[in-house]
Amino acid sequence: MEIHEQDVRLDGNAAAGLLQEVFVHEFSGARGACASCGAVGEMGAQHLYMAPLAPGAVLRCAACEGVLMVVVHAGGRFRLGFRGLVWLEMKDTAVTS
């Protein structure tokens, strides 16, 4: 069976657990701006590429498929690359009300 890239992609939401471990605050509702095309959107609405056995995931812009960020969790550390995000904004959900 041939596997097409668009059949295996997920939503940014699928990496929200992993990324909340890094950022503490909820990640899928965070907003960011794409460095390639300028689109602004919630991270949960972007495209995520993450294979079951792969140690990392790539988040791409839903508008232009430019790489927003890369996260690798392996060998006891997290490594994050943000080459396609101009900014990232998240709610301060750790504040106790």
């Binding site: 939503d11 940014g12 939401n13 929200a16 657990g17 909340q20 471990e21 909820e26 990640f27 899928s28 509702g29 919630e42 991270m43 949960g44 609405a45 709610k91």
Partner: peptide, 9 residues
């Protein structure tokens, strides 16, 4: 398990 997760969907 880890959760609850998600603030978008």
């Amino acid at each position: 398990l880890r959760g609850p997760i998600g603030g978008y969907f």
